[in-house]
């Protein structure tokens, strides 16, 4: 394969991987701190996309719509966390069941409010052009997605390594009980982290809109992918998620061309192997299951 074609395939894989990263890292951070396996994470993703769609249709412009969607989903996340998950910390099964119930309910709500047609969100006007690379044109929007993903990663790194909030969260991941003992308002931290994870997923959904489109079942599909990514990367470590999201994005994109029948299967087998050999994931520390 020519260099330029290879480059383009890599870029395509990267842009997809970055989208996956944005969505999955919310899930891993939430699990890392709160030990909540949030089955409704895909719902946040889908809602982010659908609310953005509605706002765009109300002539609000892509960027304001995205922010509104993120805010709406963040609010929903807080409500869910406070009302439904609040008493369930430590009860893994109940959490999973409740978040699964939420997934089920939100999926139907989406069908009710937005119908079952495929919807599209246009690429935001400033980014609606293509850049010539070799003899192919590559959409600038996808390059933007890559850039944004890197930005998010950098922001997360900075927050974790250099700020106090990050320190608190790191401490919480290591030893939750200690956190309370140190006088930190654990309830507040939990609510904020959950909200943050949900918002990130919603932003991912909004940004994915122009590329993937909006359709029923996108929540379940992204949930499966996120789960796989989070597990391979390591529950609780967003760095691991970053790497594994890119890997999965690449496998999917290249797989489409070379092993169209088995790209997804390869990803799953990879995940099962990781879970058996190193259950904490490629980058995770030993997490108590």
């Amino acid at each position: 394969m020519e260099i330029s074609t290879l480059m383009l395939q890599i870029l395509a894989g990267l842009s997809y991987g970055m989208l996956l990263f944005m969505i999955a890292c919310g899930m891993t951070i939430i699990y890392g701190l709160m030990h909540v396996m949030n089955m409704a994470h895909g719902s946040f993703f889908a809602l982010g996309a659908y609310v953005t769609y509605s706002m765009v249709h109300a002539k609000l412009g892509f960027w304001p719509s995205l922010l509104i969607a993120a805010a709406v989903v963040a609010l929903l996340g807080v409500v869910i966390e406070r009302l439904l998950l609040n008493n369930m910390y430590g009860k893994m099964n109940e959490q999973v069941l409740i978040t699964f119930g939420i997934l089920y309910v939100v999926q139907d709500l989406i069908k009710w409010i937005w119908g079952t047609d495929i919807l599209t969100i246009g690429v935001p006007k400033i980014l609606n052009f293509s850049i010539a690379m070799g003899d192919i044109m590559f959409p600038a929007y996808r390059l933007f997605v890559i850039a944004f993903g890197i930005l998010v990663a950098v922001a997360l790194w900075y927050m974790e390594a250099k700020t106090q909030t990050g320190a608190i969260i790191r401490a919480g991941v290591d030893d939750r009980e200690m956190l309370g003992a140190l006088g930190v308002n654990v309830k507040l931290v939990f609510a904020c982290v959950f909200m943050f994870g949900a918002a990130l997923a919603a932003i991912g959904g909004a940004m994915a809109g122009p590329i993937l489109g909006l359709y029923n079942g996108m929540d379940m599909e992204i949930l499966t992918l996120s789960l796989v990514i989070v597990v391979i990367g390591g529950l609780g470590t967003w760095k691991g998620t970053f790497v594994s999201a890119l890997i999965v994005g690449m496998i999917e994109t290249f797989g489409q061309v070379y092993f169209p029948n088995f790209s997804m299967a390869i990803v799953f087998v990879f995940m099962v192997i990781v879970l058996i050999v190193k259950p904490s994931g490629l980058f995770g520390k030993g997490v108590t299951a």
């Binding site: 396996m37 893994m92 789960l227 597990v231 529950l235 799953f268 099962v272 879970l275 299951a289």
Partner: peptide
């Protein structure tokens, strides 16, 4: 147990599905 079992069973299920 717990989360890992859920994820493993789900992953295996989806593997077969694919």
């Amino acid at each position: 147990s717990g989360a890992y079992l859920i994820m493993l069973t789900m992953a295996f299920n989806q593997l077969l599905y694919v």
